[in-house]
Amino acid sequence: MVKQGVVPDDFNKPFFDAANEGRLVVQSCNDRLYFPPRPASEICGEGESVVWKEMSGRGTIYNYCVVYDCPVASLKEDLPFNLAVIMLDEDPGILMYSHLPGTAPDEVPVGAAVRVIFEETANGQKVPEWVLVE
C-alpha cells in the first residue's frame, strides 16, 4: 500500500523529520504526552515548555476495523485492508493508526505487541507504521 505523499506543516515538521530518520517522537509538556502534533501554544501555556520526546517504538493493538469502502483514491486498489489503532507503551492514551503491514485482513490479534517501522509515502516522506512483534 502506498499512502498519499505528505507535505509537513511547520508545527508537525519535527515529527515527520524524525520519521525520515527512523525515530518516533511525540510532543510532551510537563511529562504529559500529546499526539497528533499541534501548535505548541495549543498544548500548554505559551508553548515554551513543549518538547519533542523520542518514544521506544513499542506498542499494543487497541482494536481494529477492516476497511472495505475507503474515500482515499490511492488506497482503493488495496481494499479490503486492516486499519488498527495502536497504543504506545509509554502511554496507552497516545494512539496511532496502522494498516498493520504483513497481517492479513481480519486476522488481527487485538492486544498483541507491535513495533514501529517507517514507511515511505508517495512523495518519499516517511510515516510510522506498525508490525507485529515476532
Binding site: V6, D69, C70, V72, A122
Partner: peptide, 25 residues
C-alpha cells in the same frame, strides 16, 4: 482524498487521514 499529496496535519488528524478511514470508522 483524491490528491497525490496532503498536508501533514491532514495525514495525522482525527477522522479522515492518510490511512483511509471512512466516516463510520
Amino acid at each position: 482524498s483524491a490528491a497525490s499529496e496532503v498536508p501533514g496535519s491532514f495525514a495525522l488528524s482525527p477522522g479522515r487521514t492518510l490511512w483511509g478511514a471512512p466516516g463510520c470508522y
